[in-house]
């Protein structure tokens, strides 16, 4: 037994030697970490960015281009509230020059654990390498009553800011500045990429808003309170939530109450994010004949949502289809 453990320790050390040498070569090229280059390292210097959610990974790629290497910690099919503080994520935080996360306590269950174990001061809260998107937008649903009897509420307000493209625009501007601060050698490149992105984004926003005009005032039911920013942007009216409290699985008594409410006050659709199971939404749909709309919620949530632009193309498309299917009028 003892010999086996000894052998394992030796093997671990062996692997370390190989990887360690390789990594030193990479580290030497990271901007702001010394200018040592050459010595067999021919890769282009690139800033290691770890994005907590896919939307920020996509945004970092838009603005960072070839000057960054982006690792996205979660996929569009994962619940960003509940991520395991996995060893692979600790290793990524260890390597990162910059973290791009939502903040507003969305990652409270896992990011602090990663940060404490990674031994990387470049990305600790307070360092320039720690970027919280939610601190650059106006947040909705800031609770006036903070108590766990209200479920999994976020003290700083609703953190799902990425469903409003106007928020993306604000975060993009802040991110381009921050990238320039962390990696001054490429500040101009970040700025010019941001200018190009911003122009394209504004055009796209006009297009989405024009297309989504029929959605204004449409009554909807949401499964989780994940869409206040989307509703705010498009003028959707959220009249009921299937989770009685945020983060608490919908109970049958609460669902019955929602059903009764919908008989008095009908809704056009029930929406849920792709990462959530559609059990509760499907149950409601089977009893009311209103359609269930699965929204991508973030990049990669649906096959169509490949980047930030197609994320909103697809979101608007899916909402419009539901309204057309149920006919016009309210």
């Amino acid at each position: 037994m003892k010999k086996i453990i000894n052998l394992c320790l030796l093997l671990m050390l062996g692997q370390l030697g190989i990887n360690g040498a390789h990594a030193t070569c990479k580290d030497a090229q990271v901007p702001g970490e010394g200018e040592a280059r050459g010595s067999g390292c021919r890769e282009r210097p690139a800033l290691q960015v770890m994005a907590c959610e896919p939307e920020w990974g996509a945004l970092a790629k838009e603005i960072g281009g070839d000057d960054v290497v982006v690792y996205t910690a979660t996929t569009g099919l994962q619940d960003p509230h509940r991520i395991e503080a996995r060893p692979s994520l600790i290793a990524q935080v260890r390597r990162a020059n910059m973290l791009v996360c939502t903040g507003a306590d969305l990652e409270a269950g896992w990011l602090p654990l990663l940060l404490r174990q990674a031994g990387n001061p470049r990305v600790q809260p307070g360092a320039p390498g720690y970027f919280e998107a939610a601190s650059f937008v106006t947040k909705l649903e800031i609770p006036t009553r903070l108590d766990r009897s209200e479920g999994d509420v976020h003290a700083a307000g609703n953190p799902h800011i990425q469903t409003d493209p106007r928020n993306i625009a604000q975060v993009a501007e802040a991110l381009s500045k921050r990238l320039g601060e962390v990696d001054p050698a490429h500040a101009a490149a970040y700025q010019s990429r941001h200018a190009a992105f911003s122009a394209k984004w504004n055009t796209a926003m006009q297009r989405w808003e024009k297309r989504a005009a029929p959605l204004k005032g449409v009554a909807i039911v949401v499964q989780h309170r994940g869409f206040p920013y989307l509703s705010n942007w498009l003028g959707l009216r959220e009249i009921a939530t299937l989770e009685s409290k945020p983060g608490i699985e919908p109970s049958s008594s609460h669902l019955s109450a929602v059903l009764a409410q919908l008989q008095r006050q009908p809704a056009k659709m029930v929406i849920h994010a792709a990462y959530q199971g559609d059990r509760a939404s499907a149950w409601l749909a089977s009893r009311t004949s209103i359609p269930v709309v699965e929204l991508p919620f973030t990049v990669g949530g649906t096959p169509e949502a490949q980047d930030l632009f197609s994320l909103f193309d697809d979101t608007v498309q899916r909402l419009l289809k539901a309204v057309q299917d149920t006919g016009s009028g309210q």
């Binding site: 370390l16 580290d27 290793a91």
Partner: peptide, 8 residues
Amino acid sequence: VAPTETFI
């Protein structure tokens, strides 16, 4: 923690 993709 080693600066590798595998957590070491």
